[in-house]
Amino acid sequence: MRLSKLFTHHPFFIRLFHWEYWSFTTVYGWIYPIFAVLCLRAGGKFFFTAANPTIKHGGFLMEPKQDIYPLIPKQYYPAFFFVPAGTSIEHIQQQVQTYQFKFPLIAKPVIGMQGKAVKKVNSVDELKHYAEVCTVDYMVQELSPYKHEVGVFYHRMPNETIGTVTGIVAKEPMTVVGDGVSTLYQLILEEPRYILQIDALKQMYGKDILQVLPKGKELILAPYGNHARGSKFVDWTHKADAEFIKNIDAVCTQINGFHYGRLDVMYNDWDDLRQGKNFHIIELNGAGSDPTHMYDPKHSLFFAWKEVIRHWFILYRISKQNHAKGHPYMTLKEAKAMFRSNNLHVTALDAIAPKL
């Protein structure tokens, strides 16, 4: 490897020189005291659970998706059904037929974490494998027909009737273009961002990773708009014009009890989405949402800290207003139980993911 590539293409240096790949604790640890001060102002309690009263824990952690989707009008999300862990493949197939689902489908844990154990299943055999491997409750969902994804950060004060958008992030999936000579593996190694996903991609493609892509053929390596799984995040907040905000607000005000969080949205045409047409909400994230537009590589760590702190204060003000309406804060004892459950769940997801 040439010396220049040693610094640009070695996983250690890729992570070292790009804060977006640093651990959650490394990024957030410096600003935790600010969050602690807000908790003290809330009487020594975890205020965020009051932000979205209809969502478990306010959507901070351990909130089940099968409880969140019914809060959203049906026309705004792909149909799904809930699958308790251990359900037989025969029963799941019956459900697929009942819902008239067609492959490919999406299987994902009902309590997610950074896209862990989310899988596009292309056949009954793949769904059977997922059912055999997945040890947590999950859901089977129609694959959205829309091709592009954005995350939209929204909030509305409980004492106000109109909300706003404070961030938009476009999600660019890992994509390579064949040259008729290089193998898929070689093409992956040309992009530093993809190198960090090489082990997962080897597992995903198996021997096919040595195939030579025809010249000009484009291949999306992974159909998941998740930063932890290789997608590039691009800050599109400047696209939040009055028309866009008005129509996003019109959707969000229909979601009972939703005041703060991020919508992950699939769409085909930006102008359609701007007008509130032809899109799917594939995830609704609550109080634990990152303002993910901060992960655009052009942004500094200082920008990220500023955005996180800004949103924490918004979260605090929303929670305080809801608390005044009778919605409780979380006690320290309850928070410890939540974090303990979350740690156990993440361990389970980490064990499942490599088997998929």
Rank of each mutant, 00 (worst) to 15 (best):
P214K: 08
G180D: 09
Y224M: 10
K333C: 15
I314K: 11
L61P: 00
I282H: 00
D272A: 14
N343K: 15
M174T: 02
L284P: 01
Q93L: 12
K119A: 10
L213V: 13
G43A: 12
K217E: 15
S231K: 01
C134Q: 00
F233H: 09
S300W: 09
A228V: 06
H299G: 08
P53D: 09
Y224H: 07
C39Q: 10
Y138A: 01
V27C: 07
P354M: 07
L201P: 06
K116E: 09
H129Q: 09
F103H: 06
A42N: 11
E190S: 12
P109R: 07
P328N: 10
S144F: 06
I14F: 00
T166F: 02
V27F: 03
P192V: 02
E20G: 05
Q197N: 13
W236V: 01
L332S: 15
G163E: 02
T237Q: 10
K355A: 10
L315Y: 09
V165G: 12
F35C: 07
F48S: 10
D125E: 14
W30R: 15
V265Y: 00
A242Y: 05
L332I: 15
V133F: 06
E149G: 07
F258C: 11
Q203G: 10
T164F: 01
H299I: 06
S319Y: 02
V110K: 04
M294Q: 14
K232A: 10
L210S: 11
L6I: 13
A222D: 12
Y316I: 10
G163P: 04
F233Q: 06
D271E: 15
S289C: 06
R317G: 08
S123A: 07
L344C: 12
N122L: 08
Q321D: 15
L105C: 11
P328D: 08
G326N: 13
S182C: 11
T166P: 01
Q254R: 14
F12K: 13
W19F: 14
Y154K: 03
L332H: 14
V212Q: 09
W236E: 04
S182G: 09
Q211M: 12
D350I: 03
Y21G: 00
N226C: 10
P173M: 06
N322R: 13
Y138K: 01
A353L: 05
Y69I: 02
H9E: 08
T347K: 14
I162M: 08
K306N: 15
A287R: 03
E142H: 11
V265S: 02
E243M: 09
I198H: 02
V136W: 04
Q186L: 09
Y138F: 14
G29N: 07
S4Y: 06
F303M: 11
T26I: 05
A51I: 04
K325W: 01
K333H: 15
E63V: 06
